[in-house]
Amino acid sequence: MKEIRDKSGEFLLGLKEPQEDILCTPAQFSEYTVYLVPEGSGIFHADFGAFPFTGPVLLFSTPLQTIYIDECRAIKSNLLQFHSDFYCIEYHREEVACNGLLFNNIYLDPIVPLSPQDVKVFELLLMQMDDEFMQPQPSEIVLRAYLQLFLAKASSIKMNAINTDQDKPQKDELMEKFRTLLNQHFLDLHKPSDYASLLAISSDTLTRRCTKYFHKSPSLLIQERLILEAKKQLHLTRQSIKEIAYNLKFQDEFYFSRVFKKFTKVSPQTFRDKTGISIVADLYK
């Protein structure tokens, strides 16, 4: 891997061409991870979600998700990784708009389908990054600019797909209502039956339509929504684990830690240690 690290040796940005056996091995990275897959197919696993794809595509994952690809067929890929200390997607949200679109969105597939022309654009950006890595003293400013262009272009393609209904060609208004209800009540309502009652449908109907529409079960979405909020507060605030557990209405910090670790494989403190606390935590005090 070609990479840059800070003065203390912490990873900031890296680029490599992983072999298929690495792609197929479950892994958790402390960094944001993007795969450019110009050709091939498989199933991209991110935590408990499974997303079939056929290249050319971009695949996205957030820090400490368990990710891997199976049923690989003739996969070619480039792996781009960056730590939030190098590029804060929340701080740059107005310029790039990738937070909640490419990353940290439990409702959207973490996949961006590409055209052949799109692939050329992304391959050129990666080639330019690769050239900068080869310099005697790679410029963080230049590399950060290439990364921002890469993410901005990916966000634009994803948003265009959503706006033209390519992302979900057949809109399910009932499932869109479920999305709204879940965002409103995820702190208090934790059972699929709770939402089925609000929607006036059976739990079986909710499970069937939700799995078809979001490619995840209602139970998984409910869990993911709560854990997503926990991750945000761990990364974007300086609140203590105890305070975050209280915000999320857990009975105590120990129960919160058990639930968080069951889902993410790491404790809240380990997650915070590995991802760091965002500069955003000090901007909005």
Score class of each variant (00 low, 15 high):
Phe263Gln: 08
Asp131Tyr: 11
His235Asn: 12
Glu243Leu: 10
Lys274Glu: 06
Phe150Lys: 02
Arg209Ile: 02
His235Phe: 13
Lys191Met: 07
Lys171Ser: 11
Asp131His: 14
Asp188Ile: 09
Phe178Glu: 00
Arg144Gly: 03
Lys231Thr: 14
Glu229Ser: 15
Met129Pro: 01
Leu189Arg: 10
Asp188Ala: 06
Glu253Ser: 15
Pro218Leu: 07
Thr237Trp: 09
Lys262Cys: 07
Val142Glu: 08
Ala152Pro: 00
Asn183Gln: 13
Ser267Asp: 06
Gln239Ser: 12
Ser193Glu: 13
Phe214Gly: 05
Pro138Ile: 09
Gln128Cys: 12
Leu151Val: 14
Leu151Thr: 07
Lys158Asp: 03
Thr164Arg: 10
Arg179Ser: 08
Leu151Gly: 01
Asp273Lys: 15
Pro192Val: 08
Lys191Gln: 12
Tyr213Gln: 06
Leu248Gln: 12
Met134Thr: 05
Phe133Met: 06
Ala154Asp: 04
Glu253Pro: 06
Leu182Glu: 04
Ala230Asn: 02
Phe250Met: 07
Lys262Met: 05
Ile157His: 01
Ala230Tyr: 00
Asn247His: 15
Ala245Pro: 00
Leu187Glu: 04
Glu132Leu: 11
Gln137Leu: 12
Phe150Gly: 03
Asn247Trp: 09
Leu221Ala: 03
Leu226Ser: 01
Leu174Lys: 12
Phe271Thr: 02
Asp273Gln: 15
